[in-house]
């Protein structure tokens, strides 16, 4: 039986989804702010997948954002969206030999890889990138357009109602 000790450091406000061999694993936060987990497996190697999803990439994103718009009283109490649309996409293959520790640290610099890997074991880097999701950016613009259209429609309705009342 092999054991993988996985530690993730340097993540700021978000908690990425981490899968070991395709299965999402639960993490615990330690006192230093980093998150860690232990995975026991019979296999000699495991695949670690780390990614951060963007809310705007959901299937029914237009409906969700219209719902947010109305619930937040026409967007007044809505949350400011992250316009950077940065996605983390990382995949590693780790050779296990007894208890193996793997420390992953998020890089702050844009030029470097998404995660810095520290381990005594053999870690094969399949994917380790951060990129700006262009589709998400496009969707952001669509949402902004819809919001403006809704505001204009609301304004016209309000003015019409006011005129009807006055006349």
């Amino acid at each position: 039986m092999n054991e993988l000790k996985l530690k993730l450091k340097g993540q700021r406000n978000f908690r990425p989804t981490i899968c070991v061999d395709g299965k999402a694993v639960k993490f615990k936060k330690n006192k230093f702010g980093s998150i860690e987990t232990k995975v026991a497996t019979e296999k000699n190697s495991v695949e670690i997948t780390i990614y951060k999803h963007l809310e705007i990439k959901s299937k029914l994103y237009i409906l969700w954002y219209i719902l947010y718009f109305f619930i937040s009283i026409f967007g007044i109490f809505d949350v400011r969206e992250d316009k950077k649309c940065i996605v983390y996409d990382c995949k590693f293959k780790v050779e296990l030999n007894g208890t193996t520790s793997v420390d992953l640290t998020f890089n702050t610099s844009k030029d470097e890889a998404a995660l810095a890997v520290e381990s005594e074991a053999n870690v094969e880097e399949i994917k380790n990138v951060t990129y700006v999701d262009q589709e998400a950016k496009k969707r952001m613009k669509i949402i902004l357009g819809i919001k403006i259209a809704l505001w204009v429609a609301l304004g016209i309705t309000a003015i019409t109602l006011l005129l009807i009342k006055l006349i």
């Binding site: 999402a24 809310e55 969700w64 947010y68 809505d78």
Partner: peptide, 20 residues
């Protein structure tokens, strides 16, 4: 992986509603 992303999307929507 798809199940994990569906779950994550649900959490993201819940978080957005929570903030509103």
């Amino acid at each position: 992986l798809e199940n994990a992303s569906v779950k994550e999307m649900r959490m993201l929507h819940l978080g957005h509603f929570g903030k509103i």
